[in-house]
Amino acid sequence: MKTVTIEAFLTWAFTQELCKVGGGDGLTTVGASNWSLTRDVATLGTLIDRSPNIYGVVPGFVVDGDPHPDAVAAGEAVRGLARIGFEIPEGWAPFPDWPDEHGLVAREVRRVVDEVRVKGDRLSGRHLVALVTGAAILGHGPDWTADYPGHRMVMKNGQPAWFVMKKAKDAFGRVYEYEADGFNRVSQRPRKGAYRRFELKNMMRGTVLARLDWQLWQDALAVLADDLQGSLSHHAIAPFSADRQPWARVRKAVVSA
């Protein structure tokens, strides 16, 4: 019985064994290994003339025997993730390592989360299956590292812009607030209660999704480690503890330095 981490076990299963499922068609190997074919599918999402099998792995041209039963168990466990649904918790804050004195990062996170909730595809078990399969094939999880996008004052005609909140009524007589130009063109002065606003210099949607995917991947690994523990014939899964916020350690290291 060989003890392995859940990450190493999945990589072994998906890159060395599950390529035997649906493979072999009388052809000879033509330069590219099963591993590189599978890796290209994970990276590019497609491969001409070769489709992934039921486990999301490109079958090999030359197959030597059946896949190891432990690898099949891994593949079925990953496929089982498709039955899981999840929600992003209210107040989810994946950037404690970044300054946010103007609330710009938090606002962008809320915007992206709202978008994800509306679309729904990233909240399905199918996304978990694709996420875990891709990480196993590539040998690493989502890249959550990123630099703070920076912020700047909102400008208009080369000058810092002024804004003011106003109230109005809709067609049903309901009062609502809206943001208007806070600069009085006649007096050439800001209006009463006017304020200035800041914005992020760079978009951070991709980074928000990467940190979401990292946490989903870690949670999925925890589920898989628990499901597979004690059910394999030749492998034992080492104890696994989800590392959901590795970026928090980076912040501590910076503060301590």
Rank of each mutant, 00 (worst) to 15 (best):
V78F: 04
G75F: 00
L123C: 07
P149K: 04
D70Y: 02
D66K: 13
A82I: 08
A136G: 07
H68A: 15
P69M: 06
V72C: 07
A146H: 10
V113H: 04
F95H: 08
E108R: 14
A135D: 01
A93W: 09
V132G: 00
V132Q: 02
V63C: 09
E108S: 11
D97M: 09
V63E: 04
G65K: 07
G103N: 11
P96V: 09
S124A: 10
A130Y: 04
A135M: 04
K119F: 10
D121H: 15
E87T: 12
V118N: 09
R126I: 12
P99E: 15
L128Y: 02
G103I: 09
G125K: 05
F95G: 01
G125D: 06
W144I: 05
D66V: 11
W92T: 10
A74V: 12
E101R: 15
I84P: 00
S124E: 12
T145D: 13
L81H: 02
V63H: 08
A130E: 15
R79N: 15
A93I: 03
P89C: 12
E108K: 14
D97E: 15
K119L: 11
A93V: 03
W144A: 02
V118H: 09
A77S: 13
D143C: 07
L123T: 05
L81G: 01
P69G: 08
H102A: 11
A71L: 02
L123N: 04
E90N: 08
G103P: 06
A146I: 08
G141D: 02
D70R: 03
R79P: 03
V129Q: 00
E87K: 12
F95L: 11
T145I: 10
G125R: 07
Y148D: 14
D100C: 09
R107V: 12
R111K: 15
V116M: 10
D64Q: 14
L131E: 00
E108G: 03
R107N: 15
V113E: 02
H140F: 15
E108T: 12
Y148G: 00
A71H: 03
P142R: 06
D66Y: 10
D66P: 04
D147P: 03
E76V: 12
W98G: 02
E101Y: 13
P96A: 05
A82M: 04
V118Q: 11
V132W: 00
P94L: 10
Y148T: 01
E90T: 06
G120M: 11
A146T: 05
L104N: 01
V72F: 11
V118E: 12
D114P: 05
D64F: 14
V62I: 13
A130W: 06
G103A: 10
A135H: 00
V118F: 08
R126Y: 12
I137W: 01
G75N: 00
D64I: 14
H140K: 15
